[in-house]
Design a protein around this nucleic acid. Structure first.
Lengths: 156, 156
DNA sequence: CTGTTATACATGCAATTGCAATCAATTTAC
DNA sequence: GTAAATTGATTGCAATTGCATGTATAACAG
């Protein structure tokens, strides 16, 4: 493996951080303007809403969401306070709890989607062709594969 | 323009947020393990270090960095406390101040780079070919072109 | 000039995050 | 079976962030 990143890798890095943060901020700002909560709320609600009975162990939600354990814990506090989800003791593991989405939670999730989709279209979709978007998704997907401990792979 | 984002756009969006945050977290973690401060510190120090006399108006630093005005202000508080930069009243504009990088600041910046570069290589460079990195940078760059007025997020 | 608006920076306060425990219920190893 | 390690969740406290506002200077309109 090259000891130093190529110029292209550094360039991609810079753009990745910059675009990631900028676009995320823009999309979140759009949602916020319309009175909606932060995207993490959506992420959690979506996970639960997708699940067959609207219920998942907190640990599993956590693994699908980009949050530290204690941050999810506190996010759930907030969601629970707004009655969007409920905590429910797990029958088969005394440490764990299930998160259950409420009707109110499902409704909010459903109502947010059009605004969210529109923001994605405005800030990302409208700036790339369909193939470009596909390509971008593919390249980015390669970056988050499990940590390869010590990577050898001669630059291909 | 399509009213709704294509599936590809949504996919790219998801990967963008996920990869952006994940890779950023990994790189920052590597730096932190080696006792270095967060990347924003690096960003500010680099801006100043690049500048001919190590000095820039705070407002200009701000426009090159992804931080809200009040957050830069407080970051500068911290940098100043560590004696990495100094605030200096601007001679030609009584509202403004110049940020000046200190020797200690230059040293830290210089010492951080190898660790930073290695982290970029590990988490990004080693996972993409040179052309792929180039392509990725190009696609991402297209996303942050100036917005039709609105939004806080900084560009350029 | 003088009043209005805009710019550069700072700050009080509330909300959120990160860190380092802590607690309780498993699981594992002997 | 029991001690030790692990896992899932939580919490106190300090640091950081967001928001609204404050202060001072500069630019502009009349």
């Amino acid at each position: 493996m090259q000891p130093n990143p190529s110029e292209n890798a550094v360039g991609a890095w810079v753009q990745l951080v910059r675009s990631g943060q900028t676009i995320l901020a823009r999309v979140e700002a759009d949602l916020k303007d319309q009175g909606y909560p932060p995207l993490e709320w959506y992420d959690v609600l979506l996970e639960l809403d997708k699940s067959p009975d609207g219920k998942l162990p907190q640990a599993q939600v956590q693994s699908n969401v980009l949050l530290a354990q204690y941050n999810l814990c506190r996010l759930v506090d907030r969601l629970e306070r707004e009655e969007l989800v409920k905590r429910q003791p797990s029958p088969d593991d005394g440490r764990s709890n299930h998160l259950v989405i409420t009707e109110k939670g499902r409704t909010l999730r459903r109502e947010m989607w059009p605004a969210y989709a529109a923001a994605i279209q405005t800030h990302l979709g409208s700036r790339l062709s369909c193939e470009e978007a596909h390509q971008l998704g593919g390249l980015l997907g390669r970056l988050v594969q499990a940590e390869p401990a010590e990577c050898d792979a001669k630059n291909r």
